[in-house]
Nucleic acid binder design. Structure first.
Length: 399
DNA sequence: GAATCGTGGCT
DNA sequence: TAGCCAAGATT
C-alpha cells in the first residue's frame, strides 16, 4: 500500500496539488466519457469536482483532492475518527477534539490500548456519548483483527458506531469505493437539485438513489466531500448562495424561486421541560464529590454530581429535602440546559462537608476537575456553585 | 418506525 | 429570543 498521505509534508502536498490541474481536467474528461450512463449526472459530478478542486476547505482530517490518482491514500483511522466525531456535530467543534485524539492515540492500536475511561474524558463536551463508547469498542475490534479497517461499505457497517452514512463515507474517502454518501448536507443539496417534495425522513431512500446515480467512478471520495462542502458553504439551509453554486444551472429548486423550501420537513414535536436539583458537595481541600452515570442512556458512562431524578413535574419540588445526605445546603442558583428531546432546569445546591465519599461516589481534587468526564450540563452545575472550578488551573481557595 | 441521544452556533 | 440544525446510530 502507498505511504499515508497525511504523513507527507505540507509543502510536498502543495507542490503536487499545484501541478495537477491539467491532470484533473483530463480525469474529468475521461469521466465524462465513461462514468455513468446518464450524461446529465455526469456533468453534475464533473462540475462539482472542478469546483471542489478550486474551493475545497482545508480541514485537519482531509487530504489534498486527487489522492488516489497520485498513488496515495488517506489513513483509514483518521477518516473513521473524523467521521464519527462529525456525526451530528459541527466542523468547528470537531477540530480541536480530532487533534487532541490524534495526539493521544495516533493509531487504532493506540486507541484500543487506552482505558475506556480516558476515552470518555477526552470526549467530554462533544456530546452524544454513546459515540465514544462505540468508538472504543470499534477500535478494540479493529485492533484485534490486525489493525485494518474493512475496505467495503458492508464490512464497515458491521462495526459499532458505523451506520449507513459513516460506512459509505469511509468506503468512499478512505478506500475509493463508489458509495452513496448521504448526510444532512447531501439531503439538502439533492432535494433542491431535483425539487424532492417528499418530506424527510420518508425521502431518504429516494435521495439515496438519486445520489447513487450521481457518484462518479473516479474520485468518489472527493465527490462525497464536495457534495458536503457544497451543502456547508453554498447550498446552506437558509439564504443559499445560489449565484456562486457550480450546479445552479442544474438545479430545479432555483427555477421554483424558493430553494429554501427544500428539503421539505415534517413539523417537530415540542420539547417538554424537566426539573430537578443537583448537589455540589465540597470538601475542605476543595475537592468535589462526583459519581459515574450508568453506561447506557442519557449521558451514559459520564461523570456527574449527585442529583435528584429529572422529572416532568413543574411543581418546584426541588429543594434540599431531596439531597443525597444531610448537610448545610445553600441554594447556589439555577441552570438551564437543552437536550435533544427535552429542556432541563436544575436547582443547584452547594455545601461543605466532612464525610467520606458515599458508596459509588468519589472525590475529585480541584486540579482534576477539568479533566473529568463531565458533560457540559454538569460543568454548568458546578460553575453555578463554584465559579471557575471546571476551568483549567482554577484559582481555588480551600477553606 | 419512532424514540432516544448533546452541544454550540446562527438567525 | 427561540427555534433550527449539524459529516447519524442505535434500539
Amino acid at each position: 500500500m502507498a505511504p499515508l498521505d497525511q504523513t507527507r509534508k505540507a509543502a510536498a502536498e502543495k507542490a503536487v496539488s499545484a501541478d495537477t490541474s491539467q491532470a484533473r481536467s483530463l480525469d474529468t474528461s475521461q469521466a465524462r466519457s465513461s462514468d455513468t450512463s446518464e450524461a446529465g449526472s455526469l456533468d453534475i459530478a464533473a462540475r462539482l469536482l472542478a469546483w471542489y478542486d478550486a474551493h475545497h476547505r482545508d480541514l485537519p482530517w482531509r487530504v489534498t483532492p486527487g489522492a488516489f490518482a497520485r498513488g496515495t491514500r488517506p489513513d483509514p483511522y483518521r477518516v473513521w475518527l473524523s467521521e464519527v466525531m462529525l456525526q451530528q456535530t459541527t466542523v468547528e467543534a470537531v477540530k480541536a477534539y480530532f487533534r487532541s485524539f490524534l495526539e493521544k492515540w495516533p493509531t487504532v492500536e493506540a486507541l484500543a490500548a487506552a482505558p475506556a475511561e480516558e476515552v470518555m474524558k477526552a470526549w467530554a463536551g462533544l456530546g452524544y456519548y454513546s459515540r465514544a463508547r462505540n468508538l472504543k469498542a470499534c477500535a478494540d475490534l479493529v485492533a484485534q483483527q490486525g489493525g485494518r479497517f474493512p475496505d467495503t461499505e458492508t464490512g464497515l457497517k458491521e462495526l459499532p458506531g458505523i451506520g449507513a452514512y459513516t460506512a459509505a463515507a469511509i468506503a468512499a474517502i478512505a478506500f475509493d469505493r463508489p458509495a452513496a454518501v448521504v448526510d444532512g448536507n447531501v439531503e439538502r443539496v439533492v432535494s433542491r437539485l431535483y425539487s424532492v417534495e417528499t418530506p424527510l425522513s420518508e425521502a431518504k431512500p429516494e435521495i439515496r438513489a438519486l445520489v447513487q446515480k450521481l457518484v462518479p467512478r473516479k474520485r468518489p471520495g472527493d465527490f462525497a466531500q464536495a457534495m458536503m462542502d457544497l451543502g456547508a458553504t453554498i447550498c446552506t439551509p437558509r439564504r443559499p448562495r445560489c449565484m456562486l453554486c457550480p450546479l445552479h444551472g442544474d438545479c430545479s429548486a432555483i427555477l421554483s424561486g424558493d430553494p429554501e423550501r427544500f428539503p421539505v420537513r415534517l413539523p417537530k414535536d415540542d420539547k417538554p421541560l424537566r426539573r430537578g436539583a443537583a448537589f455540589v458537595a465540597q470538601r475542605d481541600d476543595g475537592a468535589i464529590l462526583l459519581r459515574k452515570r450508568p453506561d447506557k442512556g442519557l449521558l451514559g458512562g459520564m461523570t456527574e454530581v449527585p442529583t435528584t431524578a429529572w422529572t416532568a413535574r413543574a411543581d418546584g419540588a426541588t429543594t434540599q429535602d431531596a439531597a443525597p445526605f444531610p448537610a448545610d445546603w445553600r441554594r447556589a442558583g439555577r441552570i438551564g440546559h437543552v437536550f435533544t428531546h427535552f429542556a432541563l432546569e436544575l436547582d443547584v445546591f452547594h455545601a461543605h462537608i466532612k464525610v467520606d465519599a458515599p458508596n459509588g461516589h468519589f472525590w475529585s481534587l480541584a486540579h482534576e476537575i477539568s479533566g473529568e468526564a463531565l458533560p457540559t450540563v454538569m460543568k454548568k452545575v458546578i460553575e453555578a456553585a463554584i465559579p471557575g472550578a471546571t476551568k483549567k488551573q482554577a484559582p481555588q481557595r480551600p477553606r
